[in-house]
Design a protein around this nucleic acid. Structure first.
Lengths: 227, 227
DNA sequence: CCAATAGTTCGGCTATGGTCGAAGTATGAA
DNA sequence: TTCATACTTCGACCATAGCCGAACTATTGG
């Protein structure tokens, strides 16, 4: 019966508006300074500093010092995944605000989920990869030989990915689409390769915008995003 | 920037110890009365009543009245899944208590996750089903023809399951094993069939105990639980 | 009808914890 | 060395919300 409180302590951490803002600001996987996070959360520097210490103590964030700045980032993709899952619950739960601005549409179309691609494009990527037999849908997703060849041609060093401890393929539940998109080391590599190739640009926040060539290239490779 | 607060409100709901206890008490998918939940949470009836109204208002719980009792249950499997995910985070986060009692071992071996089988046995079930080609691992798991025949022979009415709105197969992340087990309508059906067949018995809380014949039958069908 | 059980509502107490001002530390720049 | 920036720590304030006692409603059983 001592099980409830263990979830309570971490949930309480996520339950404060200021901290929730900090965490969602970090959802794009970048590291931000204390002042930047304070502004994102709408609190003063001191307050943010206090929150950040708590989040770091709970291992939700990691910090690194660089000069007189202190950079905080999410401590791992799993934290981002839980946050996405919570957003899904919050939405289904009716807590969804009516405020559906234009930025919202952009977010639903394509955004970063920690370090990989999410939103309509994200689920289209995974769906396309599966349909073409590049990735096999198992309990844990797995690359096929065909997929191996494909992503190598795409410019990704699979050997390097497989050396790391992070799973190469990972299904990550998308809060806006309510389907999975591709996370894991491969998901991260695909996104950064797309940015390198200038298929896609990071906007403010977590929004991603596809260039003209990027959209065409994406559709050719994985099929159109529209369902 | 109004995105943080939406996760904050639901997380705050999960962040109170009393409510967290209530929710974990309901993780086995059964419906419990207000008084039972009050006891599980360690608060008085009035306090529990207040918490339950909030959880119901947020659509995390649904209630139904029966005589002078009011039965509360989780409003869906997705709620249970988020709770399991949070437990995983809490554990990785170091919030794990050192208190690893005997009940803990039983929980890790086999337990209910909402209405399906979780723990070592749960992941063994899914792994075995995949290895035998009963279930194909896609972004969303899918039954093969072979699997269809197998589960029909197991005594499950697949046509009925497929009529419902709930997905038949669903991968659900197991907090103790850190791998997926089988959720969805099929996961629920398999567990209730196992109980019918007296392969397994519900103990107090979410613990499940396999009978001698149950363990043998399970191993024969899906392979041993030990990794 | 009355008594008992189950649950809700109300009101007031209290504590936890978020907030910021002010003062303190560390790093870099002039 | 001196000043400025980035951040942390301390202390005090204050609001939120959890909690329970008491009174109220509803259902059942005698």
């Amino acid at each position: 019966m001592k099980e409830g409180p263990v979830i309570a302590s971490v949930a309480a951490l996520l339950g404060d508006p200021a901290r929730a803002n900090i965490l969602t600001a970090l959802m794009d996987g970048r590291a931000l300074t204390v002042s930047e996070l304070a502004e994102a959360a709408g609190v003063t520097l001191q307050t943010a500093s206090g929150h950040l210490s708590k989040l770091e103590a709970a291992n939700l964030l990691t910090a690194e010092k660089q000069g007189r700045h202190r950079y905080y980032r999410l401590s791992g993709p799993d934290v981002a995944e839980v946050l996405e899952a919570l957003m899904g619950l919050a939405q289904r739960t009716g807590a969804t605000r009516v405020r559906t601005g234009p930025k919202d549409a952009a977010l639903r179309s394509a955004r970063t989920c920690y370090d990989h691609l999410a939103g309509e494009r994200g689920v289209a990527l995974l769906r396309g990869a599966q349909r073409q037999g590049l990735i096999e849908d198992g309990q844990d997703l797995a690359l096929t030989d065909k997929g191996r060849a494909f992503f190598a041609a795409f410019g990704i060093d699979l050997a390097a990915l497989e050396k790391g401890r992070r799973p190469v393929c990972r299904a990550c539940l998308d809060w806006s689409e309510r389907r999975s998109h591709l996370g894991g080391a491969l998901g991260a590599a695909v996104l950064s390769r797309m940015i390198e190739r200038q298929w896609v640009r990071r906007e403010s926040g977590r929004v991603l915008t596809f260039t003209r060539e990027g959209a065409d290239g994406f559709d050719a490779a994985f099929g159109p995003a529209a369902r």
